[in-house]
Design a protein around this nucleic acid. Structure first.
Lengths: 245, 245
DNA sequence: CAGTGGTCTAGACCACACT
DNA sequence: GTGTGGTCTAGACCACTGC
């Protein structure tokens, strides 16, 4: 029996290829956050497949929160500028219930060279230029969060303290509006730590208070890491809420 | 214009009703964790709908991790006894990477009356009988976790220290095998706290070390809470890992 | 009203597992 | 080979939105 050509590339269903093409359009900013994408019928024609196949592709992208379906209106590119999405990645909740409302105060914004750890997380080379931001977030009563944020400078050109202070809403809305960068998902590593001098003064807590340390890496389309964030939370009157499914 | 009869009951698609019926079969233990459920064709006949409708119902239940599809074999009821599921709700990971392996030591198992907070979380009345368990979990080097667990006694009749110690694997496998109780999802509230006398001795840490406090409520089918768990983690060499989507 | 996504069906064929 | 889930199609009809 003669050798048969191997199925090297394992079987890839049509709808996966459609997903990839839709993703490419998102990644290339052909369709911007908040806008409608073409109807299922149009996409079916464009890709020369049936509506059902487009449907399955969109279903999965919607399940990953990349697209949002709205019956009667169309399918939209997900955006952090919507009301429901303002707090999509904020897991802090008051112990007493309800939603937390925080006011930002930016303390610093400087251009520095990436150290080894930040470079690794952002998939840059050590020494590549990054922007480092410092801020606190406060309730009506006291500061609750102290954060350091690192961004690759090549993607966030011209970002300054004053541009940050001029922006009213959450940072992920700012990234979207100003730098066409939409955050898709994030990974967090959480530890308990003791407040040091710097943290205790920023958060108005005694030295050696217990704090929650949250190291986040956030990704855009195509699993590209574009933000590193190291937050410390005062969890004495609020907590980090997580749902396990 | 005369009043029109209101659409009180909002439209409910067929596949939602099928989902509900499948859920009922899971809840009533007609199909047990780990076993196959009838094929899509059989279910389609049983519920008198098309295969595609059954398919959509199963798809959604599989997305919620209640069912597991295996091509060529059938659709199975999800179980914590599978290898991949042993650690489904354990988010602790070593800072150095890899999987953590923990050995349990049960310290206590007593029948008590529910206090207000546990009763609320388990949707019982204050004073109802609950089982309270205490344990530590250790790596090869040192204890990492101290946990208190509360279970409604009516569902976990005859649970004793020795039955716990006789079980080799994770507790959710034990609940399944012994009490036909499968955990579907959980909610956790996380805080940073300081070690007190008791915690510092159990975890072999100095007094006032920082610890992660994790309060979990776990639910079976039908959103029924059946376990409350208050864990404290030593996060000096491991962290709580979370993915935000 | 037309256009969008949402549901449901029926049928053909493919990929995988077991025997 | 037989039976399972997985993919793809085509067409009908429903529900919601906005003109």
């Amino acid at each position: 029996m003669p050798l048969i050509s191997e199925p090297i590339a394992t079987f890839s269903p049509l709808y996966e290829q459609i997903k990839a093409m839709i993703l490419a359009s998102l990644q290339s900013s052909e369709w911007l956050p908040g806008s409608v994408i073409p109807s299922e019928m149009e996409l079916a024609a464009r890709y020369a497949v049936s509506q059902g196949t487009v449907r399955k592709a969109i279903d999965e992208l919607a399940a990953q929160n990349l697209l949002v379906r709205r019956q009667g209106k169309g399918t939209f590119v997900a955006t952090h500028q919507e009301d429901d999405w303002q707090y999509r990645f904020l897991r802090l909740e008051p112990d007493s219930g309800g939603r937390i409302h925080l006011k930002s105060q930016f303390l610093a914004c400087e251009s520095i060279k990436a150290d080894l750890s930040v470079a690794k997380l952002l998939k840059l080379k050590m020494g590549d230029p990054v922007i480092r931001i410092e801020r606190t977030q406060s309730t009506a009563r006291k500061p609750i969060v102290f954060e350091e944020i690192w961004l690759p400078e090549t993607r966030f050109i011209g970002l300054t303290l004053s541009s940050l202070n001029a922006w009213p809403g959450p940072m992920y809305g700012f990234y979207e509006a100003t730098y066409a960068t939409h955050m898709v998902r994030a990974e967090e590593k959480i530890k308990a730590i003791l407040a040091d001098q710097v943290l205790s003064s920023h958060l108005q807590l005694p030295l050696s208070a217990a704090l929650l340390s949250v190291e986040r890496v956030a990704f855009t389309y195509g699993n590209k890491p574009v933000e590193v964030r190291h937050a410390r939370y005062d969890t004495s009157e609020q907590h980090y809420e997580n749902k396990l499914n």
